[in-house]
């Protein structure tokens, strides 16, 4: 047991080192690219071309294969950023700051995709591009948080204090997001704007579920891939004048 723990601790220490991570990600990226593209293409291809047409919505429902993974990924990225923010605040691990910096634009782009795909899906099915529903509103707030984090980062010239500032904002946002979600839920029950119900409990058929699961897996792996690449680029940017980078 202690052996595994020891291995984990050495892995954690290695993770904090720029040269190690740079080399490791260089090796890992082609493999991750290979494994991530397979479920993504199979999932999307299966979903768009071969899965059965929904009897109620017709072919438009196929947006689900992009919308649901994007929405799921956009929230998970914020959770991982929160963990990184805690690590960065307590242990001052530089890699955690790099992680937040690289993941924020990725999270913003997938939240944007979730919002846009949701509204494009809503137009033919509910007859409106946007309704002030609880879930849509909290996704919009999440998007604004990502934008605030990105703009806060870019307002600092010193990388180290930028990392700390962004960690503080990420943590405060993470504490507030549940409150916002809950209050938006209350607000939504207070002013029920229309008879449209978003959260209909529908049983999804297996032929639709399998490609959906595949494309969710594909999205997560793509996030992993783009995160690794963005962190690698960020390390290179910060360490361009260091000896180890020059000697590569």
């Amino acid at each position: 047991m202690s052996k595994i723990l020891k291995k984990f601790i050495t892995f954690y220490h290695k993770l904090g080192s720029y040269p190690w991570f740079y080399k490791f990600s260089g090796i890992a990226i082609p493999y991750v690219a290979f494994i991530s593209l397979i479920p993504l293409f199979i999932g999307l291809g299966w979903g768009i071309f071969y899965s059965p047409t929904d009897y109620k919505q017709g072919d438009v429902y196929r947006i689900i294969y992009m919308h649901v993974p994007a929405a799921s990924v956009s929230q998970s990225i914020y959770y991982t950023m929160t963990i990184a923010a805690i690590v960065s605040m307590i242990w001052r691990m530089k890699m955690a700051g790099i992680f937040i910096k690289s993941m924020a634009p990725i999270g913003a782009s997938f939240t944007f995709l979730a919002l846009i795909s949701g509204s494009i899906w809503g137009q033919p099915t509910w007859g409106t591009w946007w309704i002030w529903d609880a879930r849509l509103t909290s996704t919009l707030v999440l998007f604004i948080f990502y934008i605030a984090i990105i703009s806060l980062y870019s307002s600092f010239s010193e990388k180290k204090s930028a990392d700390q500032a962004v960690s503080i904002l990420t943590l405060v946002g993470a504490v507030n997001l549940p409150i916002i979600k809950k209050s938006v839920d209350w607000w939504n029950t207070l002013h029920q704007p229309s008879s449209i119900k978003l959260t209909e409990s529908s049983t999804i058929s297996l032929e639709m579920l399998y490609p959906l699961l595949l494309s969710i897996i594909g999205f997560y792996l793509i996030v992993l891939l783009s995160g690794l690449m963005a962190m690698r680029a960020e390390i290179a940017k910060r360490e361009i004048n260091k000896e180890w980078f020059k000697s590569l």
């Binding site: 072919d59 992009m66 690289s102 995709l113 846009i116 795909s117 137009q123 793509i222």
Partner: peptide
């Protein structure tokens, strides 16, 4: 139109996330 627009937007955003760091590096 709806499905294809979202499909190409997805590909575009995923591609953007992959190409930008590559280009930077």
């Amino acid at each position: 139109f709806h499905v294809w627009f979202v499909f190409f937007l997805t590909l575009f955003l995923i591609g953007l996330n992959l190409i930008i760091p590559k280009f930077k590096l």
